[in-house]
């Protein structure tokens, strides 16, 4: 849920009957449908442009397979426009992709998601304390993941990576984003305020919660 400049909440959710992404806005005391985006989708999150235009990040599934893609759409007057190409995808169940999130930094959308490139046996529940401060050139967001607490067991944990891209000049920019990572995360939530964002993540065992502070520059 996001709230626009005129204090109207905008809500996205999945209507599981077909996996449609639904988008509603509170308008004069009623929840008005803005869009019924797609099918076989999941985990939608919404951010708003400065003019209130909703951007929705979600997982797009594909019939007959376990493939999935991270996709962002913009909804303008009920018309759904995909923003750039798919950001990332996995071909089947041997890999995982989850938690698409989107935030705005000025006029630029930033997309976050988690991808499990390698799935390994894992038994450790050691907490990974990620204490990261980001900063980069050209308004780029950088992540550093350092251990402030117990040593984590990299070898026995699922290697999940937080992925980050920004939409700039009409495309999702690759580059540092593909290597920026916070290992071992399979759940993220993002909050933003001004030029800062906090990424709250959970370990694969969902017992550890880590907070990273991200700074848009």
């Amino acid at each position: 849920m996001a709230i626009d400049a005129t204090n109207r909440p905008v809500i996205t959710l999945i209507d599981a009957n077909g996996g449609n992404v639904r988008l509603f806005r509170l308008e004069q005391g009623a929840l008005v449908s803005l869009a019924n985006v797609t099918t076989l989708a999941g985990d939608p999150h919404v951010a708003l442009q400065a003019d209130g235009t909703p951007l929705v990040a979600f997982l797009q599934g594909f019939g007959g397979s376990n493939a999935a893609a991270v996709r962002v759409v913009r909804v303008v007057n009920g018309v759904v426009q995909q923003l750039g190409t798919d950001l990332d995808s996995v071909p089947d169940a041997t890999q995982g992709i989850s938690h698409p999130r989107i935030v705005m930094s000025g006029t630029e959308p930033w997309a976050f998601w988690v991808k499990n490139g390698l799935v390994r046996a894992h038994a450790s529940t050691a907490q990974l304390d990620c204490a990261a401060v980001s900063g980069g050139r050209d308004r780029r967001l950088r992540l550093r993941c350092g251990r402030a607490g117990q040593r984590s067991d990299h070898c026995r944990r699922r290697r999940s990576q937080a992925q980050v891209l920004r939409f700039h000049n009409g495309v999702w920019e690759p580059g540092f984003d593909a290597t920026a990572r916070a290992d071992h995360q399979d759940a993220i939530n993002l909050v933003t305020r001004g030029t800062s964002a906090a990424m709250i993540s959970s370990s694969i065992f969902r017992k550890a919660a880590d907070v990273q502070r991200l700074v848009f520059q």
Binding site: M1, L13, N17, G18, G42, P44, S98
Partner: peptide
């Protein structure tokens, strides 16, 4: 009202 078995907000 949503369709039957609607999944909820921002969670899979």
């Amino acid at each position: 009202t949503l369709s039957a078995s609607a999944r909820s907000i921002s969670a899979k």
